[in-house]
């Protein structure tokens, strides 16, 4: 119980920190973003009524007479109501609508790719660590190279080889534009077809980290006394490897998801840009390029909340696989 409460409290603090950061950053920056925004909005024929102005000021600061504290409270209130302001680049769509349209693409792409690379990386890492001294050792330097490759560059190479040169996969996009999004087979297969290269990019560049981490833990676990005991017990090698060594060695990898997830998400944002994938990463960049501050901040918040949520889920799972976290007294 204590463990769960502590984790929950921590993520609440982290969420609060992210919200506050989001509130503070634009106020610390030079220039007056609200004016820039409103100017853009006017260009697009939006109304610059006092309500819109106030909503932007809450997000970005710069309002004349209102105190920072009351701005902060109103800002928090807006966020909890799901009101993240109006997007300028996609005017008149509210930010929340823009995010809702693009978020599923990213969640599915990054989610599946990360899960896949985690599972494959852990399995390979366990095997390489256990079978030390065999040809499998050669995988270690190979994955080192892969994990040092920038995501976007790997994406460029994959596009150059598989899309441009070989023509096996589409150059860009998330689905065939002649189709309309829906839950039909034709659309789904198109989405999978378009998502393969981006997913491959994420898997290939993140798998090395999992593999190396797991391999190192496995090497440590293999010299633990419980493995020796298991061998003395006359258990089969496969059973020792899975039930004793891997079971223990996987714990730090799971605990390390928090660190790695941030990298994967960062890498994915740039990957989406290379593929012009209709996900939230591309939207974030569009927002930046168009000075669509409200959208930019909304996306930052959503990404952060998603990462925090994923971390919370992992931490809760961790409690299931490590009985020591369940100590009550």
């Amino acid at each position: 119980m204590r463990y769960y409460l502590r984790k929950l409290a921590f993520y609440l603090v982290a969420l609060w920190a992210a919200l506050t950061l989001n509130f503070v950053i634009p106020r610390l920056m030079p220039g007056n973003p609200v004016d820039i925004l409103l100017a853009k909005l006017q260009l697009r024929g939006g109304s610059v009524d006092p309500a819109a102005r106030r909503s932007f000021e809450l997000l970005l600061g710069g309002g004349g007479d209102e105190s920072v504290v009351s701005q902060y409270l109103s800002y928090l209130g807006n966020v909890f109501r799901g009101d993240l302001g109006v997007s300028v680049s996609a005017f008149p769509a509210p930010v929340s609508q823009v995010i809702a349209d693009s978020l599923p693409w990213t969640v599915v792409l990054v989610g599946i790719a990360t899960l896949l690379s985690f599972l494959v990386g852990i399995a390979l890492g366990a095997l390489v660590g256990w079978k030390r001294g065999t040809w499998l050792d050669a995988l270690v330097p190979a994955t080192t190279v892969l994990s040092a490759v920038p995501y976007f560059w790997l994406a460029l190479i994959l596009v150059a080889v598989f899309a441009s040169a070989l023509g096996w996969f589409p150059l860009l996009g998330g689905y065939d534009v002649v189709l309309s999004p829906g839950w039909d087979a034709e659309f789904l297969s198109s989405a999978i077809y378009h998502g393969t290269l981006p997913a491959l990019t994420i898997v290939v560049s993140s798998i090395g980290g999992w593999l190396l981490g797991m391999r190192n833990m496995m090497v440590s676990a293999a010299s633990e006394d419980y493995v020796l005991t298991a061998q003395a017990k006359g258990l089969r090698d496969s059973r020792i490897m899975i039930r004793y060594a891997t079971r223990n060695a996987v714990l730090p990898s799971v605990a390390g998801v928090a660190i790695s997830l941030g990298f994967v998400v960062s890498g994915s944002i740039i990957t989406e840009q290379v593929f012009s994938y209709p996900g939230i990463g591309s939207k974030l960049l569009q927002a930046v390029q168009n000075n669509d501050y409200a959208l930019m901040q909304g996306i930052f918040l959503v990404i952060t909340v998603a990462v925090l949520g994923a971390n919370l889920v992992v931490d809760l799972l961790y409690a299931l696989i490590d009985p020591r976290t369940r100590v009550t007294g």
Partner: peptide, 24 residues
């Protein structure tokens, strides 16, 4: 340690992008 852990779980690159986006 709380501060480091919070900084750890807030994804870095999106934050950098947002900051870079605000700086002309």
């Amino acid at each position: 340690s709380l501060f480091s852990n919070v900084m750890l779980v807030i994804p870095g690159l999106p934050l950098v992008i947002v900051i870079a986006g605000f700086v002309p």
